[in-house]
């Protein structure tokens, strides 16, 4: 199990628990269920690189944007 932190930069910070095998799409689905926003509208990003097929490790911090 992995735990990832997603920061909204608008006042919300979310911890999500995920398997190491899961993809980012799966992570977005879990976030949508936990936040209440559609998975298509979520964009995970780290400083200018948008995460689509990237690897994620335990304790990583990601930036969360709402398209």
């Amino acid at each position: 199990m992995i735990e990832v932190v997603c920061n909204d930069r608008l006042g919300n910070k979310v911890r999500v628990k995920v398997n190491s095998d899961d993809t980012i799409g799966d992570l977005k689905k879990v976030l949508s269920a936990q936040i209440g926003i559609k998975a298509e509208k979520i964009r995970l990003q780290k400083s200018y690189s948008i995460f689509k097929d990237h690897e994620i490790h335990d304790g990583d911090g990601l930036e969360l944007y709402y398209n």
Binding site: M1, E3, L10, G11, N12, K13, V14, R15, V16, K17, K29, V30, A33, Q34, I35, G36
Partner: peptide
């Protein structure tokens, strides 16, 4: 969710439920 600085985290069981539903 609330607009102020808030940290949200769910337990393992809850996440498992969500995952099963998805």
């Amino acid at each position: 969710t609330t607009p102020t600085n808030v940290i949200t985290s769910l337990s393992i069981e809850e996440t498992n439920r969500i995952r099963i539903s998805l």
